[in-house]
Design a protein around this nucleic acid. Structure first.
Length: 509
RNA sequence: CGGGGCGUAGCACAGCUUGGUAGUGCGCCUGGUUUGGGACCAGGAGGUCGUAGGUUCGAAUCCUAUCGCCCCGACCA
C-alpha cells in the first residue's frame, strides 16, 4: 500500500497557492464550476456557510435599523445611463437581455420577440432602487430610508474564480437615503464598522478599515470605504465596501424631498455590500494544507460526532451514546444559538469520514468507540490542531465544555490571522526597499512574497497607475481606524512630497 | 482581448512524436476478509478520446477550424 501523503491537499499553499485554493474548494465540497461560463454551483457545505454569514449579518443590519426588500433582477438600460460615472464603470461588464421569447426554428430555439428597450441583468442596484426611492421619498419625514436587499447580481468578468470572482454572485446591498450629508456619511461609516466587526468577530479575519483613493472608488461615489483583509499568499482582498454617494444618484433618479425649511432638496444616499467573496476570503485566510478551517461562529456544522464501530455487537451502544452526546451538545448554546452538531453515521470507513470533515473544516470532531464507552471518554480533535492530535475528555462533562472549546478555536484563528498579517506588514521608507519588497525572486513562477507595505504617499492618480503597471501594487486604503491607523507626517516614498499619514500598499485580488 | 498551458471514464492522468480502433490509479457496484481508522482480495459497471470538418484502407494519435477550461496580464466585489 502506498504511503498516504502527510496532508490532504496537493499542491500545498507554498507550492502553488492558486491551485491549492481550487483544490480546497473541491475537497471541501463547497462549490463547483457549472456548465454556464463563469457561474458556479454552490454545494450544501458552501451554501450552508453562506446561510450562516447571511443570518448573522442580517441580524446586525436589523439591529442598526435596516429593513429588507427586494427589487427586480432586470434594469432598463436607460436607468444606467442616468449617472455618467456609473455607466462608465459598469457598461463593459453588463449582461444584456434583448428578447423575451423563443421560437423553434430548424430544430433550434431562437429568440424572436425583440424588446423595445433592452434590460441589463443587475450588476448592482443603485439605479433601480434609486427609482423606487424617488417614489417613496416625499418629505424629510420619510428619511432616513434604510433598506437592504439580499440578491444575486451578474458581472460579465473576463476571468473568474470560484467565490472570488464569478459572473453571477450572491450578495447583500444596502441602500439608504438621508436628509443631510452628515447623516449619510454617518451611515456609511456605521456600516463600514459593522463589516469590520463581522469580519473580526464572526469570520475571525482581522481587517484594515480605510478609505479608497479616487482611482479605486466605486463608480459614482464620492467616498468609498473598504475593509481590507490579508490572505495567506500575502495579497490583499477587499472584503466589504461602504459608499457615500452624495447626491449623485439622487439627482440621477430624482430622489427629492421637501425639507424642514420647506425647500425641495435632493437626498443624500449610501450603498454598502458584501458578497460570496467572503467565502473565498475565509478559505484563503484560514485554510491549511489539509483544507478549509471554518471559524466556529459561521461553521454550518460546528461539532461532528464520528461513531467508531469496529464490532457489530457494540455498534448499537456506540450509536446510542453518540446520539445522546449530540442532544446534550445541541442543548448548549454558542453566541446565543444552539450548537450545530451532526452525527456522521454513514456506512463508510472511519478514516475516510474523518478526513472528509478535516477537509471541510468542521471545528470539532468527536469520536466515540467501544473503549470510550467502557472508560467514559470521548476523543476530541480540534481542526486548528494537527489531524492526529486528539485529546480524551470525560464524556459526562464534555457537552458543557463545548462552547468554551469552540470559543478558544474562534479566538485562536483570529490571533493566528492577526499574527500572520502583522508579520507580513512592513513600514517602508525608501523606494528601493519598496521595490524589493514587491519583487518576487523567481520571475517565472513568482513565489509568495510581499505583504502590506505601510508607506507615505503624496502622489497623483497617474503616479498610482504607474505603480500598478510597474509592480502590480495598489493603494489598498488610507486607514481610518484600528491599530494601523496613525497620523504621522512624513515624505512620500515616490515623489518626496509631504504626506500626512501612511497608507497601505499591496498586491490584491 | 493579449501571452502560456490543457481538453481521453465521476476525479487525476498515461497513450499522440513513430496512425491499426483505449489504459492506469482513485472513486463507484457486488461478494468475501478486515476494523480506533484515509484497509485488503476477487469480480464488475462506466469512455462515439471537447466539437466539426479534412487526409487515410484505417485517426485519441496527422491537418484545419471552432468551443471550453486553467495560469499570467488588462477589468473588477
Amino acid at each position: 500500500m502506498a504511503k498516504q501523503p502527510q496532508n490532504a491537499i496537493s499542491p500545498t499553499r507554498a507550492e502553488d497557492f492558486p491551485e491549492w485554493y481550487q483544490q480546497v474548494v473541491r475537497a471541501a465540497d463547497m462549490a463547483e464550476n457549472s456548465e454556464v461560463r463563469g457561474c458556479m454551483v454552490i454545494k450544501p457545505w458552501g451554501y450552508g456557510l453562506w446561510e450562516r454569514i447571511q443570518s448573522q449579518l442580517d441580524a446586525m443590519f436589523k439591529a442598526t435599523g435596516h429593513k429588507n426588500a427586494y427589487f427586480p433582477l432586470l434594469i432598463p438600460v436607460s436607468y444606467l445611463e442616468k449617472e455618467a460615472a456609473h455607466v462608465e464603470g459598469f457598461a463593459t461588464e453588463c449582461a444584456v437581455v434583448t428578447h423575451h421569447r423563443l421560437e423553434l426554428k430548424d430544430g433550434k430555439m431562437v429568440p424572436s420577440g425583440e424588446l423595445t428597450e433592452p434590460f441589463v441583468i443587475r450588476p448592482t442596484s443603485e439605479t433601480i432602487i434609486g427609482a423606487a426611492f424617488a417614489r417613496w421619498v416625499q418629505s424629510y419625514r420619510d428619511l432616513p430610508l434604510l433598506i437592504n436587499q439580499w440578491a444575486n447580481v451578474m458581472r460579465w468578468e473576463m476571468r473568474t474564480r470560484l467565490f472570488l470572482r464569478t459572473a453571477e454572485f450572491l450578495w447583500q446591498e444596502g441602500h439608504t437615503a438621508h436628509e443631510t450629508p452628515e447623516d449619510a456619511m454617518e451611515e456609511t461609516r456605521k456600516m463600514h464598522g459593522v463589516y469590520e466587526t463581522f469580519l473580526r468577530e464572526h469570520l475571525a479575519i482581522p481587517v484594515i478599515p480605510g478609505e479608497k483613493t479616487e482611482a479605486e472608488r466605486f463608480p459614482g461615489a464620492l467616498n468609498t470605504f473598504t475593509v481590507e483583509a490579508m490572505v495567506q499568499d500575502r495579497k490583499a482582498i477587499q472584503a466589504g465596501t461602504s459608499h457615500f454617494l452624495g447626491q449623485n444618484f439622487s439627482k440621477a433618479a430624482g430622489i427629492e424631498f421637501e425639507s424642514r425649511a420647506g425647500q425641495r432638496e435632493f437626498a443624500w444616499t449610501t450603498s454598502w455590500g458584501v458578497s460570496t467573496r467572503l467565502i473565498g476570503t475565509l478559505i484563503m485566510a484560514h485554510g491549511d494544507d489539509d483544507g478549509v478551517i471554518m471559524p466556529p461562529r459561521v461553521a454550518p456544522t460546528q461539532v461532528v460526532i464520528l461513531p467508531v464501530t469496529p464490532k457489530e455487537d457494540t455498534k448499537a451502544a456506540v450509536l446510542e451514546a453518540c446520539d445522546k452526546l449530540a442532544s446534550e451538545i445541541r442543548a448548549q448554546s454558542f453566541h446565543g444559538e444552539p450548537i450545530l452538531v451532526e452525527v456522521d453515521d454513514r456506512d463508510l470507513g472511519g478514516g475516510v469520514k474523518n478526513w472528509e470533515w478535516i477537509k471541510k473544516g468542521a471545528p470539532l470532531r468527536l469520536e466515540i468507540g467501544p473503549r470510550d464507552l467502557e472508560k467514559g471518554s470521548v476523543a476530541v480533535a480540534r481542526r486548528d490542531r494537527a489531524p492526529k492530535d486528539k485529546e480524551f475528555l470525560e464524556a459526562g462533562s464534555l457537552a458543557g465544555r463545548i462552547p468554551e472549546i469552540l470559543q478558544s478555536i474562534q479566538d485562536g484563528l483570529l490571533e493566528r490571522a492577526l499574527a500572520f498579517r502583522n508579520e507580513n506588514t512592513k513600514r517602508i521608507d525608501s523606494m528601493e526597499e519598496f521595490r524589493s519588497y514587491f519583487t518576487p525572486s523567481n520571475e517565472e513562477k513568482p513565489e509568495i512574497h510581499g505583504g502590506f507595505a505601510f508607506a507615505h504617499w503624496g502622489g497623483s492618480a497617474e503616479d498610482e497607475e504607474r505603480l500598478q503597471k510597474e509592480l502590480k501594487v495598489t493603494i489598498r486604503c488610507i486607514p481610518t481606524s484600528g491599530d494601523l491607523c496613525e497620523e504621522e507626517a512624513g515624505e512620500c516614498v515616490f515623489t518626496g512630497k509631504p504626506s500626512a499619514r501612511r497608507v497601505v500598499f499591496a498586491k490584491s485580488y
